[in-house]
Design a protein around this nucleic acid. Structure first.
Lengths: 172, 172
DNA sequence: GCCCAACGACTGCCTGAGCAACTATAACCG
DNA sequence: CGGTTATAGTTGCTCAGGCAGTCGTTGGGC
């Protein structure tokens, strides 16, 4: 074959991407059982782990893989479904918070255990502890190198986080 | 914080997903310079590595993250852009092949070196050989566990190919 | 040979998401 | 203060992609 495509580098990304795709599929299936999409799950998770179970729309966008307009629409849907509410920001009348409702918290609590179980079943449980650590170390390196300013207009990935070594390569 | 979200399992997926997102973003940027989207690149790559630089639409769908209707549409676009052609399948008049044109091959050849460089720069080159091997071993395990029947109807990954080295483990 | 089930490709319809334009507010600066 | 600039959120437009339905083709059972 003399194939350029057997290059080990190609294989490497192939592995990473396929692993990601596989896990995504598994997770999506489980999340769907609870009526959540992956994005919705990410949104509600980010909110729930934030003080007051709330975040300003922009900050939410910065923490997720979404643009601000994307966030507007997810929050629209989730508000319609009763999982979230918007709340005006007292000191800045431009901003508004997305807040998790009681129903939202309940939904999350119903979903999380199963989700953790999935992670263990398909990911962390597949490796013995040493191998897992090695894997995670490697991933961390790669993440730290490639991660920032990821998908959309997330120029800074959230101030307080101060993403290590943000290499500020503004493309485009 | 006593946060459920600091669970190591959450962190683990976080790493994997962020690494994937980061690399995707980098790759997309480079591909875009050559007028290709990620899907288009995957399509043209899969075709180019197949005998005769062609695949039947269904097989192409099975090898990519796309449904058959998705493939129809990508191929539409790429045919319009002169990168691909459709060719009737002689022995089965239902099927048709997608074939890479000369222009398509040229585009691919222009794109590949830079792509490999990106992989090296942001992924494989970030780790010393041992760590890389460990990472890939771990990924392979996870991939083999979670990967299959990923997004759409990829039951078997194409009979005749029996994929070199790469994915010897088909399941389901 | 004939009929019916399975299959390959394509199309209509719908959803999700990004970009760019817009509005309202805030901050800055003279 | 008054004007300019930046920022937060929303909305119009567009496009990619999935699902389900369609049409032509094939192959199997009889």
């Amino acid at each position: 074959m003399t194939n350029v495509f057997d290059d080990p580098r190609i294989t490497a990304v192939g592995l990473l991407f396929e692993a990601h795709a596989g896990l995504s599929a598994r997770f999506n299936a489980q999340l769907e059982e609870h009526g959540l999409s992956a994005v919705e799950f990410e949104v509600i998770t980010r909110l729930a782990r934030s003080p007051g179970n709330q975040l300003r729309m922009t900050d939410l966008a910065a923490q997720t893989s979404l643009s601000t307009s994307g966030v507007t629409r997810v929050v629209d849907r989730m508000e319609r479904d009763g999982l979230l509410t918007r709340r005006a920001c007292p000191n800045d009348r431009r901003s508004s918070y997305a807040v998790v409702t009681a129903a939202g918290m309940q939904r999350l609590n119903e979903t999380l255990p199963g989700h953790l179980q999935m992670i263990e079943q398909w990911f962390t449980g597949q490796l013995d502890p040493d191998a897992l650590v090695a894997l995670l170390d490697g991933l961390r390196r790669v993440r730290d190198a490639a991660h920032p300013c990821a998908t959309a207009g997330s120029d800074d990935v959230s101030p307080e986080q101060a993403a290590a070594t943000d290499d500020a390569t503004r493309r485009r």
